[in-house]
């Protein structure tokens, strides 16, 4: 079959062209609309973010000026926290021996004399002395053992000798100090 009529072919081509142009127009319009929406959304997001940034920057300026007014207080507070931390650490490791001596002197019976007291470690003291009798020495031991001050943990007698020259009972004993009991 050979088509010899050129006119209808031209018309058909023109119709196709018109159709294609129509599709292109609609497609272009849709594309344009999407682009516009995209632009508008981008613009809105951009300006919201920018506005927020401007607000935040203004807040920084305001806070900075407020903090500058309290700069000296802050400096003092920082120093206090730093030095305080070190002091707390030192104080938690340092026993108050005056507290120990004060408490111990309240426990010694009248007949007992301590001639030497040595603090060998924060948890142990060694005491040497003499007593008028075994009874007063045992009273001393009992008082230390039944201590309610929370300082003395126990007592161990190291040596007891009755002096033939003085007639007094000479003793050496170790007293255990409860851990952290001398910390203020």
């Amino acid at each position: 079959m050979v088509d010899i009529n050129l006119l209808p072919q031209n018309i058909r081509a023109a119709e196709n062209e018109t159709k294609l142009a129509g599709y292109l127009k609609i497609g272009g319009a849709v594309f344009l609309a999407i682009s516009v929406i995209f632009l508008v959304v981008s613009l809105v997001i951009f300006f919201i973010t920018k506005g927020e940034r401007i607000k935040s920057e203004a807040k920084i300026t305001s806070l900075t000026s407020q903090l500058q007014a309290g700069q000296n207080s802050e400096k003092s507070a920082v120093l206090l926290v730093n030095k305080g931390a070190e002091l707390i650490k030192i104080m938690q490791q340092t026993p108050r021996y005056s507290k120990l001596l004060t408490t111990l002197s309240q426990k010694v019976p009248a007949e007992v004399n301590i001639s030497e007291l040595t603090i060998t470690s924060p948890v142990k003291i060694s005491a040497a002395g003499d007593s008028g009798s075994y009874l007063s020495l045992s009273q001393f031991l009992k008082v230390i053992t039944a201590d309610t001050s929370g300082i003395f943990g126990g007592v161990s007698l190291q040596n007891v000798v009755l002096s033939s020259q003085t007639g007094r009972v000479q003793f050496v004993l170790d007293i255990t100090i409860k851990e952290k009991s001398l910390i203020i």
Binding site: E17, T18, L20, A21, Y23, L24, K25, I26, G27, G28, A29, F31, L32, A33, I34, S35, V36, F38, L39, V41, S42, L43, I45, F46
Partner: peptide
């Protein structure tokens, strides 16, 4: 015949590029 459609696409592209830059 395609000019209007092409113009629309071109304008759309320009706007899209502007939106991308803004993004």
């Amino acid at each position: 015949p395609y000019s209007l459609g092409l113009v629309l696409v071109a304008v759309g592209l320009i706007i899209l590029l502007a939106g991308g830059g803004l993004l």
